[in-house]
Deep mutational scan, measured.
Amino acid sequence: MATADDFKLIRDIHSTGGRRQVFGSREQKPFEDLVDLGWLKRSSVDSRATHYQITERGTSAAL
């Protein structure tokens, strides 16, 4: 179930172009929650960072 923080984060991601790069596993937790909701997808993972991209469902949630 989505929380107020989830909606705040997806709106922030949407307003800044729909993509986010995250460093460190602790910082990934809120983004992984949005992946579980179907609002974000992991577009790539490298040794230092994970890249996320907003989905259509995420765009709808952000509006």
Rank of each mutant, 00 (worst) to 15 (best):
S47V: 10
F7I: 09
F23M: 12
F7Q: 04
D12T: 07
A62G: 03
T50P: 06
D6Q: 14
D6L: 10
V35L: 05
R48C: 11
H14Q: 09
V22H: 03
Q28T: 09
V35E: 03
G58D: 01
V22A: 07
A4G: 08
R48Q: 14
P30D: 05
D12N: 09
F23V: 12
A4Y: 10
A4I: 12
A49P: 05
G58Q: 00
I13E: 01
Q21L: 14
E56T: 10
R19C: 13
L40I: 06
Y52Q: 00
T16W: 06
T3S: 11
E32C: 06
R57Y: 08
T16G: 10
R48Y: 13
E27C: 13
F7M: 07
F23L: 11
I13S: 00
D5P: 06
D5W: 08
T16S: 12
I10C: 02
H14G: 03
I10E: 01
M1E: 12
T59V: 14
A2I: 06
A49D: 06
T16M: 09
T16N: 11
K8V: 10
D46W: 03
A61F: 05
I10P: 00
A2Q: 04
L40R: 00
A62Y: 03
Q21R: 12
Y52C: 01
S47M: 10
A49F: 12
D36L: 15
I13H: 00
S60A: 15
F23S: 14
P30L: 06
I54T: 03
W39Q: 00
H14I: 06
F7G: 02
A2T: 05
Q53N: 07
D33Q: 15
S44Q: 13
S44N: 11
I13M: 04
I13W: 01
S60N: 13
E32N: 09
Y52I: 01
K8S: 09
F23A: 12
A49N: 08
R11E: 05
S25W: 12
R57I: 12
S15V: 10
Q53A: 10
T50Y: 09
I13D: 00
F7C: 06
K41E: 15
L63N: 07
S47D: 14
S47P: 12
F31E: 02
F31H: 04
T3V: 05
Q53V: 13
A49Y: 12
S15F: 11
E56D: 12
M1D: 10
G24C: 08
I13K: 00
E32S: 07
R26L: 14
F31V: 02
L37S: 02
D12G: 06
D46R: 03
M1P: 11
T16F: 06
I13R: 00
S43L: 15
K41S: 13
H51R: 09
G58C: 01
R57D: 11
R42V: 15
A62F: 03
K41F: 15
A4W: 11
R20I: 13
M1F: 13
G17T: 04
D12C: 09
R26C: 13
L34S: 01
L63Y: 06
L63D: 04
Q21N: 08
A2N: 04
W39R: 00
T59S: 08
V22N: 03
E27R: 11
G38Y: 03
D33P: 05
S60W: 13
R48F: 14
I54R: 00
G17R: 04
Q21P: 06
L40G: 00
W39V: 00
D5Q: 12
G38D: 04
R11V: 12
E56Q: 10
K41M: 14
D46T: 13
G17Y: 04
E32T: 07
R20H: 05
I54D: 01
F23E: 12
D6H: 12
Q28E: 06
A49S: 15
T50Q: 06
V35M: 06
V45H: 11
L9R: 04
R20M: 08
Q28P: 05
V22E: 03
S44A: 13
L37A: 03
A2E: 05
E27D: 13
I13L: 05
V22I: 08
L9E: 02
S60T: 13
R26K: 14
L9T: 03
D12S: 12
R19N: 11
S44V: 13
G58H: 00
M1Q: 13
Q53E: 15
F23C: 09
R11I: 13
D46A: 07
T59I: 15
A49R: 08
D33R: 15
V35D: 01
G38S: 03
K8E: 11
F31M: 05
R20W: 07
H14E: 06
T3L: 05
V22Y: 03
R11K: 11
L9S: 02
F31S: 01
E27T: 07
R19E: 13
T55D: 02
Q53M: 12
A61D: 02
W39C: 02
F7N: 03
A61H: 04
V22W: 03
I13P: 01
I10Q: 00
E56C: 07
L37Q: 03
Y52T: 01
D6R: 07
R19K: 13
D5L: 11
R19Y: 15
A61T: 04
L40H: 00
E32M: 12
Q53I: 14
R19L: 11
G58M: 00
L63S: 06
R26Q: 15
L40P: 01
T16A: 11
G58E: 01
G18R: 02
Y52V: 01
K29Q: 10
E56N: 08
Q28C: 08
V35W: 03
R11W: 13
E27A: 14
S47C: 07
E56F: 08
E27Y: 11
L40E: 01
G18L: 02
V35I: 07
S43Q: 13
E32A: 09
D33I: 15
A4L: 12
I54E: 03
T50S: 07
R19P: 03
R11L: 13
K8P: 02
L9H: 03
D46Y: 04
Y52N: 01
G18F: 02
L37T: 02
D5S: 12
D33A: 15
G38V: 02
D5F: 09
T50G: 05
R57W: 11
G17W: 04
F31T: 02
R57Q: 14
M1L: 13
R20G: 03
K29V: 06
S44H: 15
P30Q: 08
L34Q: 01
G38Q: 05
S43M: 15
Q21Y: 11
A61E: 04
G24Y: 07
L63I: 10
D6V: 05
Q28H: 07
S25V: 13
D46K: 05
R11D: 03
L34T: 00
S43V: 15
D5M: 11
M1W: 12
R57N: 09
S44K: 14
G24N: 13
S43P: 04
L37F: 06
T50K: 07
S60M: 14
I13G: 00
